[in-house]
């Protein structure tokens, strides 16, 4: 109890600190402050979509899936190219986008199933091999994307885009893209949905039990390998979904995999390994920190590198205060 309260105090203090810092340095420009805040929530939602799979897969299967960022890219590329494909231009933009997202998600999930079944399954007794393997797969996927779509990144113009992507709303006399708010809402919806899946369904009970002791789950009559395949597939599909819904804002490029994988790894560790709550809260903390630092650094320091190392700095800070992460078990 004591410990939990301390954890919430720490979260509140850090979050409030970031907000106050951002507010003060924006020198009363509420529009600029609002943009930073929205950008932080937007990044947080996307970090969550990559980190949730990473976290659950790690908890259950003890695999740190370095290919998770590649699945994010695959989702973005597939959605981008289906939306902009000449052959599909006959389909209404407001339908073409969700179809692209669906396709990107499904392809990500299928490739996840193939990776788990074909490559990881023979290596369950060898965790180090698996780690190296997912790293290799990430590189192979990156090269494959390069071979198919070239090295130039793609930007997604709002001019010919679908409804929410074009629409804007105004606060503090400044225009904000509604799409970013939509991504935040989708991220929050997924946090709730996956949370309900874990807490309220039979498969959720099995996953949580497997995070504690998968051998025991098997000995109780549950086909744990089948659960592994399902969870891995879902984790990759959610990451691909993240890339798919990020594409209208970020486009599709070869850097986005690592740009989201590394913060997601920081999220999973600082949230506390194996803790879903930690991953959800950690995602938004890292998102907010990155947005705050990015704005500050670009305005005052003329240096963009600070934003990319922010997740790791936050990770170090939190691990110094809480060696097992925000919601991690002491023993881990």
């Amino acid at each position: 109890m004591q410990r939990t309260r301390g954890t919430y105090m720490l979260i509140l203090t850090l979050t409030a600190g970031l907000l106050v810092f951002s507010f003060v340095t924006s020198a009363g420009d509420l529009g600029s402050f609002g943009t930073t805040l929205l950008s932080g929530l937007f990044l947080g939602a996307l970090y969550f979509l990559v980190a949730s799979g990473l976290s659950i897969i790690f908890g259950l299967m003890d695999i740190l899936n370095f290919a998770q960022g590649a699945y994010f890219m695959i989702g973005a590329y597939v959605t981008y190219s289906l939306f902009h494909m000449d052959a599909l231009k006959g389909i209404d933009v407001n339908l073409r986008f969700p179809l692209g997202v669906l396709a990107g998600t499904i392809i990500g999930g299928l490739l996840g199933a193939v990776l788990e079944r074909g490559l990881l399954r023979p290596l369950y007794a060898r965790p180090i091999f698996q780690l190296v393997l997912t790293f290799g797969v990430a590189i192979v996927f990156g090269e494959a994307l390069k071979a198919i779509w070239g090295t130039e990144g793609y930007g997604w113009s709002t001019v010919t885009s679908f409804g929410i992507h074009q629409s804007q709303f105004e606060i503090f006399g400044r225009q904000f893209g509604s799409y970013r708010l939509f991504v935040v809402a989708v991220g929050v919806a997924l946090i709730v949905l996956i949370g309900l899946l874990l807490q309220r369904t039979r498969i959720g009970i099995i996953i949580r039990a497997g995070v504690e002791d998968s051998e025991m789950v098997e000995a109780l009559g549950i086909n744990v390998r089948a659960v592994f395949t399902m969870v891995f597939t879902l984790g990759c599909a959610v990451a691909a979904f993240g890339g798919a819904i990020a594409a209208p804002f970020l486009g599709a490029n070869l850097g986005m995999g690592n740009a989201f994988l590394l913060p997601a790894i920081a999220v999973v560790v600082l949230g506390g390994l194996g803790s879903y709550m930690g991953t959800a809260v950690g995602s938004f903390m890292v998102g907010l920190a990155v947005a705050v630092v990015a704005r500050f650094a670009s305005e005052f320091l003329n240096q963009t590198v600070w934003a990319s190392i922010t997740p790791m700095l936050l990770l170090i800070l939190i691990l110094l205060l809480r060696p097992s992460g925000l919601f991690g078990k002491e023993s881990r």
Binding site: E215, E218, A219, L220, G221, I222, N223, V224
Partner: peptide, 8 residues
């Protein structure tokens, strides 16, 4: 046999 089958 796999463990889960034995349990079942």
């Amino acid at each position: 046999r796999r463990s889960f089958t034995i349990a079942q």
